[in-house]
Amino acid sequence: MNNIELEKIINNKLNSININDYVPNGLQIEGKNNITNIITGVSACQSLLNIAVLKKADAIIVHHGYFWKNESLIIKGLKRYRLKTLLSNDINLYSWHIPLDINNNLSNNIFLANLLNINFIGKINPFVFYGSFNPPLHIKDLINIIKCKLNRTPLHFGKNAPKIINNIAWCSGAGQKFFEEIVDFNIEVFLTGEVSEQTIHIATEYGVNFISAGHHATEKGGIIMLSQWLKNNYDLKINFIDINNPV
């Protein structure tokens, strides 16, 4: 497949053109024209690039790419080495950030809903999804499910919060900034990837369960779903590589 054609296909699938982001979505670094072998992953770290070189990949597709807003424009250090690795090996780098968070069919948040058996109802804002459990769950059972499915022990804080959970709001990655926004919706538990100091006070004072399950762990799903969709619909060799990150 042509590298520009691949970009157009995914942009169309994720409706990227209508999304305002902090980073360019799509083809970030151009490599060879013809693509048959693709490596996918969460972040375009050097470890992922090295694996792509070893596997003779034509392209890398990630959720966290390069050229973020307010990022330094100077090319030195690890940035120089990463770009040199891609350019010297003629590897295309693609990245889709917010499009892989908020899509209603193929995204990090939809993956979490499927993984945790959440009945997806709608959105509180473009980034925060909400849904229900049928039957309701004890909060301890939800913690155990998250631990099993995401292969890590999440941080849970639930002082003054209900033990039986009927509904949930969630946002992959760094969604703790939306915590207060969900309170008006009578949500019993809020799940996201990261936590801030003030998050615990918000949970205590509003009596809402808060769960932080890790930025990386909550943002693997979108790229996994995209990889599978491409594999099912196009003649491409695709391998998802999980470079684990405890954060």
Rank of each mutant, 00 (worst) to 15 (best):
F157H: 11
N117L: 06
L142H: 01
W170E: 07
P162M: 09
L115N: 06
W170I: 07
K163A: 12
L86H: 02
F178Q: 01
N134A: 08
I74D: 07
P136L: 03
I182T: 14
H138V: 03
I124H: 01
I91H: 04
N134Y: 12
S132L: 10
L93V: 05
L86Y: 01
L137I: 07
L137V: 07
Y81K: 08
N114E: 14
F157W: 11
G175V: 02
K123T: 05
S95L: 10
N108W: 06
N108M: 05
K79N: 04
E71M: 11
S72C: 08
N104F: 14
I121P: 12
L86C: 05
L86D: 06
I110M: 08
F120D: 00
H138G: 00
L115C: 10
L78Y: 07
I124K: 02
L112P: 02
C171M: 07
L116Q: 04
N89V: 12
I102A: 11
W170D: 05
Q176H: 13
I165S: 05
S107E: 06
I168A: 02
D90H: 14
K79W: 01
I98H: 07
H97I: 10
N119F: 06
N104P: 14
K177I: 12
G175K: 04
F190V: 05
L115G: 06
L150Y: 08
I146P: 02
N92G: 03
N151Q: 11
I102C: 10
N119S: 11
C148Y: 08
N70V: 00
Y81V: 00
N167S: 10
K123P: 00
N144K: 08
I121C: 15
I165C: 05
I98L: 15
I118K: 01
I139S: 10
K84P: 04
F127W: 07
N134F: 10
K149I: 03
N103L: 04
S88T: 15
G173Y: 02
P154D: 01
L137H: 03
K163V: 13
W170R: 09
G77L: 04
Y130R: 02
N134V: 11
G175Q: 01
T85F: 03
L78I: 12
S107W: 09
L83G: 07
N119Q: 12
A113T: 09
N119K: 14
H138R: 03
D101W: 10
G131V: 02
K159I: 13
D90T: 11
I75D: 08
I74G: 01
N119D: 13
I98C: 06
D90Q: 15
I91S: 06
S132H: 13
N160H: 15
W96S: 05
N114I: 05
K140M: 09
D90E: 15
K147F: 03
T85I: 12
F178L: 00
K123C: 00
I182P: 04
I124E: 00
E71D: 13
I110V: 13
N160F: 15
L106A: 00
G175M: 01
N186G: 13
R80C: 00
D184H: 10
E181F: 04
T85E: 12
L137M: 11
D101N: 10
D90I: 11
L93Q: 06
F179L: 13
R82S: 15
P126M: 06
N151C: 08
N105I: 10
S88R: 13
L150S: 11
D141I: 12
A169G: 08
S132C: 14
N109K: 01
D184G: 15
I74M: 12
E180P: 09
H156F: 15
T153S: 13
